[in-house]
Amino acid sequence: MVYAELYGKDLITTQEWTREELDAVLCLAKDLKRRKYSGEILPSLLEKKTFFAIFYNRSTRTRASFEAAMTLLGGHAQYIEASTTRLLQGEAIKDVARVYSRYGNGIGVRIGTLHEFQPGKATEILREYAYYASVPVINMANDEYHPCQGLTDIMTVQEKMPKYEKKKFVIMWAYAGTIRTPCSINEDALIMTRYGLDVIVINPPEFDLDPKIINFCKKNVEESGGSFQISHDLKDIEGANFIFPRSWTTRKCILEGLQTVGEKTELEIHSKYKDWRLTKELVDMMDKKSYIMHVMPVFRNLEADDDVMDSEKSIIIDQAENRLYTQMAILALTMSTR
């Protein structure tokens, strides 16, 4: 049974889980959401269990949703800011992973802005935690991957459009005037291609995705029946069923690191595309039945016009809520034997 097989399993990226395993998360997440809205008593699947949530960088929704998820299932989440530990003073990750494995039942790690680490280093650190921990390690977002967000987003797509296969899902680069990693961009491209949507990433040439992500997406659509395309033309928004406007950093910056490229130089490239913003005119090009998504925070009137993000097509609050249920399911499946 897939549910039983997930006990103790690490989640670094959705690409490393089978479709059946991802489906198990979505099935349980939807059931838990149904139970919560129907007023049923939620099962205490994580009673007397502790989840250590280690944060190297800031969070608005991730911390709140993980803590709420543990509480609703009868467990406890312990927030640990990395700067308050000895980790940033040189303590070995293997020691922390081993000790926390003795104290609790799961470890979450949120790590990796380009200001702090060289590209790829955060994923290496996550895998080091996973290697030495004897409890499941959950990626709560790093600079490359954001699996909990990916599962949330496909759950939201399925809710809003049950016949989602072959629907057009647009990931649009949008100006924000700040430097952001492509973790949620990568993850949405990966999961939407796993589930057979027609995914198109629209971005200025300097902001192309990592070739390994592109290759994964091409492989995914061969198996799922969807399609994957890269475009540099905003006109390709036409007919979209879903759109996700968000900024991310240049390929050069990802390859060489922010420390090498320089923040000023990077932002100068971004500023060339200030007109890349989701406007009502662009939304009007979409399918009549279409939705606007965003992982948040939204940089309003930069990435997208304020009235667009507050329009009836916007489902960003529903999307954010679903983080709670997908994370409840991930925690329950990886940490509970019930």
Rank of each mutant, 00 (worst) to 15 (best):
A4L: 05
L6M: 14
L6F: 10
I12M: 06
E16H: 08
R34L: 11
P43Y: 07
E47H: 10
I54M: 08
I54Y: 06
Y56A: 07
Y56P: 11
R63F: 03
E67K: 12
E67W: 01
L72N: 14
A77G: 14
Q78A: 04
I80T: 03
E81V: 06
S83G: 03
Q89Y: 09
G90E: 12
Y100H: 02
Y100S: 09
I107M: 04
G108S: 11
R110L: 01
Q118I: 07
A122R: 03
E124T: 14
L126M: 04
E128G: 03
Y129I: 00
V137H: 05
A141H: 08
N142S: 05
E144Q: 08
H146S: 04
M155R: 01
V157Q: 07
Q158I: 12
K163G: 10
K166Q: 15
K168S: 06
A176E: 15
G177K: 08
G177N: 12
I179L: 06
T193W: 11
T193D: 06
D198L: 07
V199Q: 06
V201A: 08
N203Q: 06
F216M: 13
C217W: 11
K218W: 14
V221E: 06
E223L: 07
S227M: 15
L234W: 12
K235R: 09
D236H: 15
I237Y: 02
G239P: 10
P245W: 09
R246M: 15
W248G: 01
T249Q: 04
R251S: 13
G257F: 10
V261F: 09
E263R: 09
E263Y: 12
K274H: 03
D275C: 06
L282K: 14
L282T: 00
L282V: 07
D284T: 02
M286V: 12
D287S: 15
M293V: 02
H294M: 03
P297R: 13
V298R: 10
N301M: 08
A304W: 02
A304F: 07
V308I: 13
V308P: 13
M309F: 04
K313Q: 14
S314Q: 02
D318K: 13
Q319G: 13
A320V: 01
L324H: 11
L333R: 00
